[in-house]
Amino acid sequence: MKNGRIAIPSNGQGGLDGTRSGHFGHCDVFTLVDVEDSEIKDVSILRNQEHVQGGCMVPVNLLSENRVNALVVGGIGMRPLMGFRQVGIDVYHDDQRPGIGTVVKDLIAGNLARISNDQVCGGGGGQM
């Protein structure tokens, strides 16, 4: 990824040194990373909204309105995945590493794959 804004569902206060949340809909915050010419230019924190049943489009709209281009998840349900695609946010998959900074560097380096339809899971959750 050369330019754009990356969102990482995060635990607690988030940030590059923080840990990722396994359930994007229920995460505490999103760590937003602005990338220019393949370099990290800025890191900011976006508070998540309340999650209710069937409210999967709330985080989709939240990230879209905050001009996010890419999201990295450990798992995601089919509806939010379709929602992100329909608003033009690319969804990448990593269910192994809990560190935020690690996956951000990997995404910038082009080492993360986009999530496929057969990788969707129930409830928007996932294990790392």
């Binding site: 049943q53 349900g77 509806r79």
Partner: peptide
Amino acid sequence: HKAYEGLGVLM
């Protein structure tokens, strides 16, 4: 819940 998980059904 098991059958419809991930589909974002309201209720």
